[in-house]
Amino acid sequence: DEAEQLTPVLPDGLKEENLQLVSELKDSSGSCAVDVSTVWWEAAGCKELCVVTASESSVSLWEPLAPSHWGKVCTWHLGEIPVIQIVPLPDTCNLVCVALGELEIGEIRTLLYSSETDLFKHSLVKSGNIKAVVGLKDQRLVSSIRTLQEQQVEMVWLSGTGRSKDRQTLMPPEETVTAFAEVEGMREALVGTTAANSVVVWSVNLKTGQLLRKMHVGYSYPASICHRAYSDSGLLFVVLSHPHAKESESCGNPAFRVVAFNPRTGRSRGVMFSSLPPSPAGRQVLGYLEGDVWDTAGAAVLSSGAVAVWDLLRGGCTAVLPPGPAGCWALARWAMAGAGLLAGQRDGTVHLYRY
């Protein structure tokens, strides 16, 4: 009954049918789940999309078995530093990347299987006071590190064994970079969002890391986080989320926005807003806890323990997963290759939904 009361109401009624439950996996280790993701994994000539789950002390790889069943392939046990998040590496096979730390990220490690030694190993890629990290196509990782005096922004090219094979320093903006996104279809273009609510654009290759442009997002929507970027007709479109959406209620409570920037002039205009669904009358206004974007779909865990899904180009909420009987949703991640939505609970239960 409580879960029902906490479920946000969609204008056209509940559209849970847009999400079809495909399978469930449950980590029975009893440790608290901190993240979930997917990775391509090839073994014995068979390449499959596997699920990765992380608790504070370990990371597990799950392979699809019979329809709607998952089997644990292996577990990497990490050291003293807790795992904070999994860093997905698009189009990479047999390599998992994780961020570890206490309150903030202190280390980035790659996890892999060595057939020579038949061991599941991990390797340190980066350490420091890491403010943002993202995995890009072609086995690249980009991160921002704050030191007392300055900020270091660096791109790392990873080898097949998860070690860095090349590094390129990018010119840092004055403000701390809070998120990165590659510009789709433009291998050398990278964007980032900053703590002062700007979008920055870099040119990235092994020779240069020029900062090309800094463009302000606007003060109405604080703490914008970039998820996707693409260039079309001379404009740079950036998909932003607003983790403090609840606090900017007067602006329509946007969880996600698509903003068009003209990189030549630095001017911008909002193209589409995806607002938080209205909460039932008399209940506390819903807040955005964390989210993820894949293609034109956004998903976020709300403060009610529900997961909401939006069509970012139309601006509408298309589905809501109410909190399950066993508890609230804590994680919402899009699986790679359009395989669907992963919704996770703290007890290690993960549901895969087709969208």
């Binding site: 654009v201 040119s203 020029q210 001379g234 404009l235 002039t265």
Partner: peptide, 23 residues
């Protein structure tokens, strides 16, 4: 979006900004 709100648009913005930016 049009040029009236966003200013002159260039299809080659990335190449142009890369050439103009200091190395």
């Amino acid at each position: 979006c049009s040029e009236s709100d966003l200013g002159p648009i260039s299809l080659n913005w990335f190449e142009e900004l890369s050439t103009e930016a200091p190395p």
